[in-house]
């Protein structure tokens, strides 16, 4: 019989635990959940304490910011299934748009609600080459040379890889006066030079840095710099191409949830903070590009000039680009079959 009372106790404790997570609200304290993409953990770990202090100074409220990190498509789906996000900070525009389209979680005008298409910072595909740049890589042309081998994630499975593919395509279009045949031929050469197609950015980095495969790793500029910062001085160099595609990091308040939780105001303030000088200085320290004029000026030396296109400029829209290039039997598949 002893065991049954033990069991009862354990179950009782479990139930108490469950009910306390369900009603985890205290009046004087405010709590928001920032649902974010997978590799932004360190960035928001730096931003949150600064904003929390600022919010307390302004309102007297004790704020806590909870963070959720995973692939942004997975995160969007989790919110659609009930993850109580007050705001999202993603790395794919489509994943925020889904929240607007399905059930009005996010306002339809979300991209116009905040500056720069609701993207407080941006990045672009750039190159990481071995120390001293032994192959003399300067621009996308060099990646099509016969003696160069490349590492970047598979565009079929990775948003990062899609940016690389589309940037190379935009470069070739620009160079050949909009000739799609020539652009495809250029891409065929680039794809032929790929040594390893990993499924994601993390895998591609491991292939290039730890396994020592390839002459060039193509990934976001911020990643290029973060990798260089972690490795020995001079082990790798950064090369920024003349043309690239703008990679946006869109943010939005999840109004449907924030309204019901009474956190709309603080969520908006949080996003505004990302655009403030203080916020932008933290963001730029993670090697993302920002738009705040003073911060841009102070960091001008770190970010070479690039001619940036948006996916909309060149390919119409993300769904169009996906359909034409990355769908089964699309251009990418065709070029892969050598």
């Amino acid at each position: 019989m002893k065991e049954t009372t033990m069991l009862r106790k354990i179950i009782a404790i479990a139930l108490i635990g469950l009910s306390s997570t369900a009603t985890n609200l205290r009046a004087e304290n405010v709590e928001i959940l920032n649902v974010s993409y997978d590799i932004a953990r360190e960035l928001y770990a730096k931003i949150n304490p600064v904003f929390i202090a600022k919010w307390q100074a302004e309102t007297g409220q004790i704020l806590s910011v909870r963070q959720s990190h995973a692939g942004s498509s997975k995160q969007a789906r989790a919110i659609l299934q009930g993850l109580q996000a007050d705001l999202v900070t993603f790395n794919q525009v489509l994943d925020v748009q889904v929240l607007a389209d399905k059930g009005g979680f996010v306002s339809n005008s979300w991209q116009a609600d905040l500056p720069n298409n609701a993207s407080p910072y941006y990045s672009l595909p750039a190159f990481l080459v071995r120390g001293g740049n032994p192959k003399g890589i300067k621009d996308w042309d060099d990646l099509a040379r016969d003696d160069v081998s490349l590492v970047f994630p598979n565009p079929k499975t990775s948003g990062n890889g899609r940016y690389t593919y589309l940037s190379a395509y935009a470069f070739a279009l620009n160079k050949n006066g909009g000739d799609h045949k020539a652009a495809e031929e250029f891409l065929r050469k680039i794809l032929k030079n790929v040594a390893v197609f990993d499924t994601g950015g993390r895998g591609a980095t491991t292939t290039f840095v730890e396994r020592g495969i390839g002459d060039v790793l193509i990934t976001f500029e911020a990643e290029v710099e973060n990798i260089r910062a972690k490795e020995a001085d001079g082990a790798y160099d950064r090369v920024v191409p003349s043309i690239s595609i703008l990679a946006e990091f869109p943010v939005a308040v999840v109004e449907k949830i924030a309204k019901s939780r009474g956190t709309e105001q603080v969520s908006k303030a949080y996003l505004d903070f990302l655009y403030s000088k203080e916020g932008q200085e933290i963001i730029v320290s993670f090697n993302n590009r920002v738009n705040h004029p003073e911060v841009v000026k102070a960091n001008a030396d770190n970010f070479p000039q690039v001619k940036l296109f948006t996916v909309e400029d060149v390919f119409g829209s993300w769904p169009d680009a996906n359909k034409t290039h990355f769908a089964t039997d699309g251009v990418f598949d065709r070029l892969q079959r050598r």
């Binding site: 469950l18 369900a22 989790a78 009930g82 993850l83």
Partner: peptide, 8 residues
């Protein structure tokens, strides 16, 4: 009562 995205 929410069942997903927590301990439950």
């Amino acid at each position: 009562i929410q069942l997903m995205f927590n301990l439950t």
